[in-house]
Write a protein that binds this DNA or RNA. Structure first.
Lengths: 249, 249
DNA sequence: TAAGCCGTTCGACCATGTTGGATGGAAACG
DNA sequence: CGTTTCCATCCAACATGGTCGAACGGCTTA
């Protein structure tokens, strides 16, 4: 546990405020098992940073997080060039279109737009999942060097998310080989029961920048011709994104 | 300046990382005028919290902000009940539909969906503006008790955002009076040149929960019949939201 | 009126944040 | 290929400032 106890504790306070959905010094103190006076000064200080507000007695997380989060998202080049194409993709297919990126060996949902047919999942921007547990992540994994893949698996293991999640390194590597040759990844029920996903990696200058994917109810993805149609759209969109990424401002 | 220098500094480091779009210890140290070793340990600690990552040499803000921000947004009841109606509103009108809330006397953009006709402004979720500088904010102000309005004006002043921004308390109060009797607020070029906005406050149990608004190019809002049409849609949407807010889960 | 609860303030102790300097590895240069 | 430079990281002594117990005061409850 590297230095700065106070800083780490400050973020613990933030976590507690999230968990309790707002709290006073006493509650925070109990939850963290520290004196009230200590909790109090943390809350005061966090308030002075703007990341915490004191709304009618209880301290709450402010919208500074939302602001910073959005700004980070909007500054991301992959988001900038993907946002519009992804919107079009969702409009054309009617399904849920998503863009994810890799961060620290994990999969981060950067943006998703729902089409008219798509069901609302709890997919919020910033949601972090394992890479191996769905098509979008596997599309990325398929483009990473083998030793990075191994390193990630070593570090995180392969704990199952649903009953369909890959839990064995051999299977994963074989699957990634297939993804590479097919140029796309699919999954059924791997991340969420009842949902299937098709994903393609975004590669520019031999570097994976992320992946885009379409998620829809399992029975729809199982229809082969429908799947082919989605895949086509997906590839067109990917093409657009790649070009914009290379030559766009 | 309330206590916890280290905590406040940690957030200064975060600001610097944002400003520099990622940096090493040396850059941070220079920017903040502190020893490198100090900058280093802050970065290490922030990294251990997950809010900062060390991507290929430079420390950067992670997507933990995006994650936390989204979760805060999604937990907000006003967002939960407004999201779908707002989407419909944007689809029907083709314009940019927005929902804002008040926090600490300021206006926070919680969510916006663009219609097909709408132009992309830099309106990101979490963006914070004064309340008095556009219709969405004035709609909220119009429903706050007079002394809160005065308190806010006292605290923040009325610095102009564009040439059309209200800069005088008398004018503001008179305008709010009008908003109250009309039931909606309008502005031309007050927040952004060339854009006009119509907004209505969301009131449940005599409490303003926020406001929804439509923004479009000034010339379009100036058309009286078009404005009336937008206003109608806006009011319908508001009705839906209010009911959902009261009786929804 | 008394008792309990909670947010806030105060002051002293010493843990811990702070600092300059040392180390080592990688890149830039001759 | 050796040298220099730069920068991230580590270290150890110092004193700042984080920590904690206790006390104050406002608010609600019995």
């Amino acid at each position: 546990m590297p230095g700065m106890k106070s800083v780490r504790r400050a973020f613990d306070v933030i976590d507690v405020l999230w968990k309790l959905d707002g709290a006073g010094p006493t509650e925070v103190a109990n939850e963290m098992d520290i004196p009230q006076s200590t909790a109090h000064i943390y809350l005061q200080t966090l308030q002075s940073t703007g990341y915490v507000v004191n709304a009618s007695g209880t301290y709450e997380l402010s919208h500074a997080f939302l602001s910073m989060g959005s700004r980070i998202k909007h500054r991301n080049k992959i988001y900038q060039v993907s946002q519009q194409p992804l919107q079009d993709l969702a409009d054309e297919t009617g399904e849920l279109a998503t863009i994810v990126i890799e961060e620290e060996g994990e999969c981060v949902f950067l943006h998703n737009v729902s089409g008219e047919k798509s069901i609302e999942l709890g997919l919020y921007a910033g949601l972090t999942t394992p890479l191996y547990s769905h098509a979008a992540g596997k599309a990325i994994l398929s483009q990473l060097p083998l030793d990075r893949v191994n390193e990630i698996v070593d570090r995180q293991g392969l704990s199952p998310v649903t009953s369909e999640t890959i839990t064995d390194r051999e299977t994963l590597l074989k699957e990634l080989e297939m993804v590479r040759s097919d140029g796309y990844a699919v999954d059924w029920d791997q991340q969420i029961e009842g949902m299937g996903t098709i994903g393609v990696p975004i590669v520019v200058d031999d570097q994976v920048r992320g992946s885009i994917s379409i998620a829809c109810p399992t029975e729809r993805v199982k229809d082969k011709s429908y799947r082919a149609k989605l895949l086509n759209k997906l590839r067109e969109t990917n093409e657009t994104i790649t070009i914009k990424y290379q030559y766009g401002s």
